[in-house]
Every structure is written in C-alpha cells, then in structure tokens.
Simulated assay, not measured.
Amino acid sequence: MQLNFDRRVADSLPSSWVDKAPVALRPYLRLGRFDRPIGFWLLGLPCLHGLMLARIGQGVGWIDLWYTVLFAIGAVAMRGAGCTYNDIVDRDLDARVARTANRPLPAGTVTLKQAWIFVVAQCLVGLLVLVQFPLPAIGVGLASLLLVAAYPFMKRITWWPQAWLGLTFNWGIPVAYVAATGRFDLELFVLYAAAICWTLGYDTIYAHQDGEDDALVGVKSTARLFGESSQLWVAGFYGLNAVLVGVAIWLSAASPWVVIPYTLYTAHLFNQVRKLDIEDGEQCLAIFKSNRTTGLLLVATLGLAALL
C-alpha cells in the first residue's frame, strides 16, 4: 500500500515554469500556487464582476483600468498568502493525501517559520494594494481576513467547506462594488449570493479528485456529502447562480442586449454539468479549470451592460 501511495505522490508532482525557476525560489512559488494560476483567476474575476456591475449605466473609465490592475496584483498576493496559510494549518493532513504530500511543508523543503514569513510578505503586498482604494472599500477588504483565517478549519467541522470558500473567494465583489460606488445596493448582495453558488458548484467538482483520500483522513466536503448525487447538486447550484445573476442584471437596469453574452455564460455552466463524471479525476480537474472561461464570460456580460 505504501509503494502505491508513493507512486501516486510522484505522479502528482507538477511540471510547470516553476521547475525552471531558481532552486531557492521553487518551494515558495509552490506554496503560493504560482504553478497553478487558475486560483488567481477565480479570486480576481469576482472583483471585475463587482466592478462591472457597479458601472452599469455609467460607462467604464480610466479609474476602472487602474482598479483592474490593482485587483490583479491583489488577487495574486492574497491567493498566494491564503494558500500558504492553508498549507501551514493543513501540513499534517497534506502529508497523508497523495495529491498534496509533495507540497513544500510536508515535503520539508521549507520550514514553518519560513512559511509564516512568506505569508506576512504577501499580506503586506495585499495591504499596499488595498489602501489604494477609497476608505469604505478598505474596511470591506479588511473584513475578509476573518473569512480567510477560518477557512482551513471548515473541512474539519462542517460538510460544507465549499460554502465558506464561496464566501471568501468572492469577497472581491463587495470590495470592488463599494470602491466604485461607495454604496451597498441590493444588486451587490444578489450577485454575491450568485457567486457563492458558483463556487459551491465548481469546488464540489474539484473536491471529487480527493474523495477517497479525504474519507481516509476524515476531511469533510460537499463532494463526500453529495456522493453519487453530486451532478444533480452542481446543476442546482449553477441553476441558482444563473437565476441570481439574471436578477442582479435586471436590478441594475441593464440593456436587453446583455441577454446574448448571458446566454453564453449560462450555456457554459451547464456544459460543465453535462460533461461531469465524478469518477474521472482528470476530467473533474479540467472542468474545474474551465471556470476561468465562465468567469470571463460573466465579465463580458456585465462589461457589455456597462458600455451600453
């Protein structure tokens, strides 16, 4: 059994540009998941969703380009900090799961002290980004630290850690919306709720890669909770997301022309459901990664609404 585990660990080692980086930097780049950029997209795109929703009926200006650059930098820094913190908390669990046993902390390529220093350094970058926004948005952004701090423990205490991830990963929506408007409007909360449903769907798909190992170490997830019914649940989450996105667009009084990109957006969501095979880990990962396209389609939908 141990030989089989070791082989699975070896097979899980990623091959990416990080392997060509200076040796001293590689463990830190892997701690921050710089070799897996999908997380940067999934953290950064909700910021653009909130920003574009705020601009519907107003048009997009140079300040929005500046905010987009800031959100991109902040997404990289804070996703990296979050992943590093998560690895610190989960280092013992990661050592017992094939897909994560090669991460720097369980593998011993960085020390716990070095990992904490890396967390602080990335958080300082995120703070420098955050203080560029108006004061109300700074307050909203700082509130996310409570969600981030609690997230790694959710899979130990609830079957719904994906819901907490949804609350955390989509916090950029209220930050961006408040930065652009200074207000908390109903459409903001509706879009945020829609994004939580989106995350519940895609992270349930993602969690099916680890179902067997999670069961062995006692880690909870919606993938384990739903089991064979996961495809139906994902369809429900995505369906609710599509409805709530439509309501948010309607509340913002967007042009009817947005129905074209909105239709492409919803079609892409349900194509994921159609292709989902929870027994195929590689396919689950590919479908999960396709949510970058999902997020970009929603940016296009809301961006077109802002321009018309």
Score class of each variant (00 low, 15 high):
V89R: 05
R91E: 00
R96K: 01
V97T: 07
R103T: 07
R103Y: 04
L105Y: 13
A107H: 02
A107F: 08
G108H: 08
T109R: 00
L112G: 12
K113E: 15
W116T: 02
I117R: 06
F118D: 04
A121I: 11
A121R: 11
A121K: 12
Q122I: 10
C123E: 09
L127P: 00
L128D: 02
L128P: 02
V129K: 10
L130G: 08
V131F: 15
P134V: 12
L135W: 11
L135P: 00
P136K: 13
P136N: 13
G139R: 03
V140F: 02
V140P: 01
A143P: 00
L147W: 15
L147H: 14
L147C: 11
V148E: 15
V148D: 14
Y151A: 10
Y151C: 05
F153A: 07
R156A: 01
I157K: 05
I157S: 00
T158E: 00
T158P: 00
W159C: 07
Q162G: 02
Q162A: 02
Q162W: 09
L165H: 05
T168M: 02
N170C: 13
W171L: 04
W171A: 03
G172H: 02
G172K: 05
P174G: 01
A176D: 08
V178I: 12
A180K: 09
G182A: 13
F184Q: 13
D185T: 11
E187D: 15
F189C: 07
Y192F: 15
A193Q: 05
A194K: 08
I196Q: 12
L200S: 00
L200C: 05
Y202V: 07
I205M: 03
Y206E: 15
Y206Q: 15
Y206C: 12
H208F: 09
H208Q: 02
Q209M: 03
Q209C: 00
Q209F: 01
